[in-house]
Amino acid sequence: MSWKPRVIVFTCWCSSSGVDQAGFEGFTYPPNVLTVRVPCSAVINPSLIVKAFEKGADAVLVTACRPSELRRVAPSRVTEARVSLLRRLLRTIGVEEDRLRILWISSNEGSLFSREVSRILGEVERLGPLNIGGSMVEQG
């Protein structure tokens, strides 16, 4: 097939159910969206996101619970802060910041997931393959 962006999606337990729901209800999205299920978005260490880019992801998506839906404190807020910091870092090294996104997905929002992920993929496709310099990729 022609070039298609490769996307890593880190999903917390709840939003992973939302991703399940998409398939369950028959909402499709491109196959190169690869999901990694983790208990909470909080376990997604920023270096893991960097690793994904380094290893060839053209975009990284984090799906997590809406902060307003969490009971007391919001690990989603911490994740959001981490993502926005990383986006700024990406920009300083000349990478389009929109390659890193955070999406609030509840456990029943399958259609929202498939819609958003397809839209984002379209945008990344327009940006083209990620190029952060061959040397860095080789070192990884």
Binding site: V38, P39, C40, A42, V43, P75
Partner: peptide, 29 residues
């Protein structure tokens, strides 16, 4: 085992089962 505390710790002193970089990094690669 929700993992919320992992995000809060600036020292990365908290770990949770097999959800560390040691596991997730080779997985993503």
């Amino acid at each position: 085992g929700c993992g919320s505390c992992l995000a809060a710790c600036p020292q990365e002193a908290i770990t949770l089962g097999n959800w560390g970089l040691e596991q997730l990094s080779p997985m993503v690669s």
